[in-house]
Nucleic acid binder design. Structure first.
Lengths: 368, 368
DNA sequence: TTGTAAGCGTTATCAC
DNA sequence: GTGATAACGCTTACAA
């Protein structure tokens, strides 16, 4: 039952069906197709000796169950879908790429595949989710970069396909999400800087309304408040889109103040790098005359010896898959055991803590 | 025939089969399943009025053909597979990410899906190709980052699955490949620098044996030779792994020479950024005292105002899909028309030209 | 313990 | 022009 070319060779470079089917294995082992299936899906129901014979045939033929047939039968594709974002021209972020890779690994661990697709805009995105869901090509989705007022979770709920998000809206608790605790990250940066003696700490962030950016600054301000520094830092909070040029501009404005900050926290490495440029342009040595800290720990942060808050992306990916798993049609595989004890059985969302990576840009003992 | 929960509602958040099948459409339109299938696959064989009725039912029910059933029937998954590489810690490259996104768009254009997977090493990679191919989950593969002595193409030929590579080995012409003409890129850089009056042009590259790196330097040297500058540039060619630190070290060595180069070409932006650091550390202003040019036009190149050779990644992705298309089991869709005239019908491989993006790092009119 | 039968949704073949 | 039949490869009852 092996498909063969007219000339009798196994199907060549252009495909066909070069693989053995369950019937081939059955024939080779001298049993029925069912027994082969049982060996794979319910080994305990098969006599030891028969099992051995079948397994021998399986390896001999290199048999692998056909995914389409399984999918059709089980009404389950065992595929997770995610949109792949396009590179932001002016942004340095590698978070998305790290996440994709980590997610690929995480879904493989539960015998699923990862399907990626590009979408031009949110409508196109939802349209694709719908299509992939209705055609049965994808069982569940992962949504990336959920923002404060993101409408996609609601639309997904309406779609009815299982999904989990990396990030959360301001209010939603009606869907699965995993997020990095940006507030903690911001607080860690503030503590780090305050401990080093900084009192006038500036912030260069994104416009209000991005959940991530807002939480980062909230964490920062919380600590400043605790140390009674909000007064000294008043007016040192500037905002702009995530572009290096904005970091340069806004950083420059801060540094040109009569009482400039001795440390600047940026909402991203992209902005932070701009601030570094601005400092250098003014003859300041970052790490000595000015402390700068960014977020996301991009490769560029390494170049600039920039302290940065690193997100535990790999853990996020694993956590998302674990959250999704009970909702996957292929309920077979039991959830992977967790590293840390958890209450994941009941959770809608989960927060993971980021880590501050300290480099030279904030290593100076004390400001001027 | 719509699957329903026990309580009669359409299958809820956890899946099931919320979609209408072809039988539902047939019933709704009062025709047989075949007629519905014909409306979709051979409309000309169906009477105008019947077609309308069926199409109405299709939209009414939001019917989308089940992908698993199609795959089983047609022995074709209409899925392209590619390995997703992990982020290189010390490297700045975004080429892989751009490529993934571009490839996702390109395969969607021919009604295919893109499946990505992570692999730990080349063996794991080939193992996964094999599994994906044998299970029928993937029709064809795209291999990224083919190197001079890469054995993967040979292994793929042995596997028998259709594939195309981004990059080429030194000799192979027995498989489909698309590559960027790195030699032309190197030459363009050299011409650019020579035209600006540079005569002592250094090179900081990767160790010999990487096809990409070797070709870049070959293009460079070709132009230097043409201008009789190889003598003056003797000994200005240093090599190291693709890390910023190596750029700093090697760049420093070049700049500390008695007769230092007035321009340094790096095999990558990563190394180039290191060279820039080395120059700054010596009080040199890049773009005035020293010209630096990199490769790949990463976001970081923008930060440093670094001239860089940009690869036409999107075109590569489209070209790869076009090359693959005649070899895909789903031979239905005719190849997309090309922008430029071509001999693609007979090609095994194709070279695409990169572009030099000139920025401030090499914009200086003339060296000292 | 093993085998037989049926069906997942689709489409190609062949009657009507 | 339309509809019945069969088959793609697999697995879940059920029968032997």
């Amino acid at each position: 039952m092996l498909k063969r070319d007219k000339d009798g060779a196994e199907a060549g470079v252009d495909g066909g069906t070069p693989t053995a089917s369950i019937a081939d294995v059955a024939a080779a082992a001298g049993v029925s197709r069912q027994t082969v299936s049982n060996v794979l899906n319910a080994p305990h129901r098969v006599r030891e000796e028969t099992r051995r014979r079948v397994e021998a045939a399986i390896t001999a033929l290199g048999y692998q169950p056909n995914r389409a047939a399984q999918a059709l039968r089980a009404q389950t594709s065992r595929v997770i879908g995610i949109r792949i974002e396009s590179i932001q021209i002016d942004s340095l972020t590698t978070v998305h790429d790290r996440f994709l890779h980590a997610l690929a690994e995480a879904v493989q661990a539960i015998d699923h595949h990862l399907l990626v697709f590009a979408a031009d805009d949110p409508d196109d995105e939802i349209g694709t989710y719908t299509r992939l869901h209705r055609t049965g090509a994808v069982d569940a989705f992962v949504l990336y970069g959920i923002d404060e007022d993101d409408v996609r979770p609601r639309q997904m709920l309406h779609l009815g396909a299982p999904f989990a998000t990396f990030g959360r809206t301001g209010h939603d608790t009606d869907h699965l999400w995993v997020d990095v605790d940006d507030e903690t990250g911001g607080a860690a940066v503030a503590q780090h800087l305050v401990a080093r003696g900084h009192r006038r700490i500036g912030f260069v962030g994104w416009p209000e309304g991005s959940s991530v950016g807002d939480r980062r600054v909230a964490g920062l301000r919380g600590v400043l408040d605790k140390h009674d520094l909000l007064g000294e830092c008043a007016g040192l909070d500037l905002r702009g889109q995530d572009e290096i040029a904005n970091g340069v501009t806004l950083g420059g404005i801060l540094l040109d103040r009569p009482a400039p900050p001795t440390a600047v926290v940026a909402a991203s490495d992209t902005l932070a790098v701009g601030v570094v440029q601005a400092a250098r342009a003014r003859g300041l040595v970052v790490g000595r005359d000015l402390a700068v800290v960014g977020f996301d720990d991009t490769p560029t942060a390494g170049v600039f010896d920039l302290s940065s808050v690193r997100q535990p992306i790999e853990a996020v990916a694993r956590s998302i898959v674990r959250a999704l798993q009970p909702h996957l049609p292929a309920g077979g595989t039991p959830p992977q055991p967790e590293t840390e004890p958890s209450t994941s059985e009941v959770f809608a969302g989960r927060l993971l803590a980021p880590t501050l990576v300290v480099r030279a840009s904030s290593a100076a003992a004390t400001p001027r």
